[in-house]
C-alpha cells in the first residue's frame, strides 16, 4: 500500500512500490489525462509535476512520490492554477492540438517551465525550444506550441 497525494487529495494505492506513477494514475486512480507514449522517458507524454518539478511518470516509481505532491493535467487546467489556466487558454486560442494525445505532457512541461521563470520575465524562443525539447509531437504541432507558450508568458506578465 502506498499513499499518494494527487492534486491535493490523498489516495491509497494497492500496488507494488516499483509501479510507475503513470500506471497508478491511469489504472488505479482513473486519471487518464496523463498519457502513455514510450515507457522510457523519451517522449514526455506522461509528464506530471512532483513538488512542482516536471517529471516523467512512466519511469518514476510511486515510492518516490510518497510524502510529496503530485499534480496532473486535470488539476493544472481546471482553472485553479493561474499558470496552468493561462497555458490552457493559449493552447485553445492557438488551436495547438491535432490528435492531441501528447498535449497533456506538452502543457505540463510548458506550465512547469513558465513557473520556473521569475515573475514577468519573457522567455526567449531558444529557451522555449529547450524547455519543450523533451516532448515529442508526431503530428507536428511545434509551431503552434511555440506561439502558445510565448502567448501564455505574455498573459502572465
Amino acid at each position: 500500500m502506498s499513499t499518494l497525494n494527487v492534486n491535493g487529495q490523498a489516495h491509497t494505492v494497492d500496488a507494488d512500490p516499483a509501479t510507475p506513477i503513470l500506471w497508478a494514475l491511469r489504472d488505479h486512480l482513473g486519471l487518464t489525462g496523463t498519457k502513455f507514449g514510450c515507457g522510457a522517458a523519451l517522449c514526455g507524454a506522461c509528464t506530471v509535476h512532483l513538488d512542482g518539478q516536471a517529471i516523467r511518470s512512466c519511469v518514476t516509481p510511486i515510492s518516490v512520490a510518497e510524502g510529496k505532491r503530485l499534480t496532473t493535467i486535470e488539476a493544472t487546467t481546471d482553472g485553479s492554477d493561474r499558470v496552468g489556466a493561462a497555458v490552457h487558454a493559449a493552447w485553445v486560442k492557438h488551436d495547438v492540438a491535432q490528435c492531441g494525445y501528447c498535449q497533456s505532457g506538452q502543457i505540463m512541461s510548458a506550465t512547469a517551465f513558465l513557473k520556473s521563470l521569475p515573475q514577468g520575465r519573457q522567455p526567449t524562443p531558444a529557451e522555449i525550444d529547450t524547455a519543450m525539447a523533451g516532448n515529442i509531437c508526431r503530428c507536428g504541432t511545434y509551431a503552434r506550441i511555440r506561439a502558445a507558450v510565448a502567448d501564455a508568458a505574455r498573459a502572465l506578465a
Binding site: T72, W91, D95, A97, G100, I107
Partner: peptide
C-alpha cells in the same frame, strides 16, 4: 474555426481508445 475538441485536448479530458475503462 477552432477545433471542436480544442478544449478537451488541452485539459486531459479528451478520451482516447487507450483510456477505455
Amino acid at each position: 474555426t477552432t477545433r471542436i475538441d480544442a478544449k478537451a485536448k488541452s485539459s486531459g479530458r479528451q478520451a482516447f481508445g487507450i483510456d477505455m475503462r
